[in-house]
């Protein structure tokens, strides 16, 4: 189409694997834009992220340094990439990288890259370890939780909990532990990967509901689609889900975005307790979820809206969406030649 605007968007989270990152879903939304003609620059941490090999979705891929190597390494790499690609917007899709992008934002703005992401304060306030405070402040029920830094603290803290109990990492991973030994195993497993603290959380028996939403950073909820997970994989990820019409969920999401002036995509994870019917907030993820394409399918293209907001285009908030649309996740074996793998592993770009 001639009248579409050309734009270059860089996206992370191309790991569309069994516990998928949101990158590929975000790209699908962008590619369907009526407003933009989008060129996609994939930013990959690992050389086997499937998105790297999806030629129809991703135009160019660069490897970037893992967040733990620090702000300077990332800035240097992105500056190099920017000189070649003239990126207009970056959409980060990992929790663990967000702090780095928050710090980098002013530097990236200077080299012409726009971002719509939460502020440091918003990011920290919703950290899993701070959920109790968060619940009090926003008047939202949260499961009892406690952060621990050592195995001794874990043992002490567990005395206050009934089993089963949920053991969670700061950024990722959550396991249900049925005994103190389970809990210790998970503590070591998670802390080896993501460091301290580890969060112990009360187990709520019920059904999980999720909302994918977008805030403009000024207090307006630009869109939101609630979903019920209809089936889970053995890793606890959504296998299938269905969009639902629940004003309570939408109100909670709207209250949060309005009060916090959230900027960027987010996912709210809630549990409706079986016995009481009460809603408990489990997590707020500071990015789009892997199932964000359901929102696109329901008529709200959140990734496209995020790009428009980042580029200061006029965007109207969307209220309507199709209820009862389902997503079903499937896996698909791509056939790839070795040369692409060689390119990315030797040169870090392809």
């Amino acid at each position: 189409m001639k009248n579409k605007k050309d734009i270059t968007v860089a996206v992370t989270g191309l790991n569309a694997i069994d516990s998928p990152g949101p990158g590929v879903a975000v790209i699908r939304g962008l590619k369907e834009s009526d407003f933009y003609n989008v060129k996609i620059v994939g930013l990959a941490y690992e050389i086997l992220e499937p998105g790297i090999y999806m030629d129809e979705l991703v135009d160019k891929v660069y490897q970037i340094p893992i967040p733990s190597s620090g702000f300077d390494a990332m800035l240097e790499r992105l500056t190099y990439i920017q000189a070649k690609e003239k990126i207009d917007v970056i959409i980060p899709n990992f929790d663990a990288e967000l702090m780095t992008f928050i710090k980098l934002k002013p530097h990236l703005n200077k080299i012409g890259i726009h971002l719509l992401i939460p502020t440091k304060e918003q990011f920290e306030e919703r950290l899993k370890g701070n959920l109790n405070e968060f619940g009090k402040k926003h008047d939202i029920k949260v499961p009892q939780s406690e952060s621990v830094y050592s195995i001794n603290e874990l043992e002490d803290a567990l005395e206050e909990f009934d089993y089963p109990v949920v053991i969670k990492g700061k950024f990722y991973d959550a396991y249900v532990a049925h005994s103190i030994n389970d809990a210790k195993d998970y503590f070591f497993k998670i802390s080896a990967k993501w460091g301290a603290p580890i969060i112990i959380q009360e187990f709520i028996k019920g059904h999980e509901f999720n909302v994918t939403a977008l805030g403009d950073g000024k207090g307006v909820m630009m869109g939101a689609v609630p979903m019920r997970k209809t089936f889970l994989t053995d890793k606890g990820k959504a296998w299938a889900g269905i969009s639902i019409d629940d004003p309570k969920l939408l109100k909670m999401t709207n209250d949060f975005i309005t009060k916090s002036k959230w900027g960027g995509g987010l996912e709210i994870e809630l549990m409706k307790e079986d016995k009481s019917g009460d809603l408990f907030l489990l997590e707020i993820n500071p990015r789009f979820p892997a199932w964000v394409y359901l929102a696109v399918g329901c008529g709200q293209n959140h990734p496209e809206m995020l790009v428009k907001l980042a580029m200061n285009e006029e965007v109207k908030p969307l209220k309507k969406y199709d209820v009862g649309k389902m997503f079903i996740r499937y896996s698909y074996d791509m056939i790839c030649d070795l040369d692409k793998y060689e390119q990315i592993s030797i040169h870090g770009e392809v």
Partner: peptide, 14 residues
């Protein structure tokens, strides 16, 4: 470029 591939067992190296 420094890419090494062992077709016998499918491992690759730099």
């Amino acid at each position: 470029s420094g890419f090494v591939f062992n077709p016998e067992i499918g491992t690759s190296f730099t």
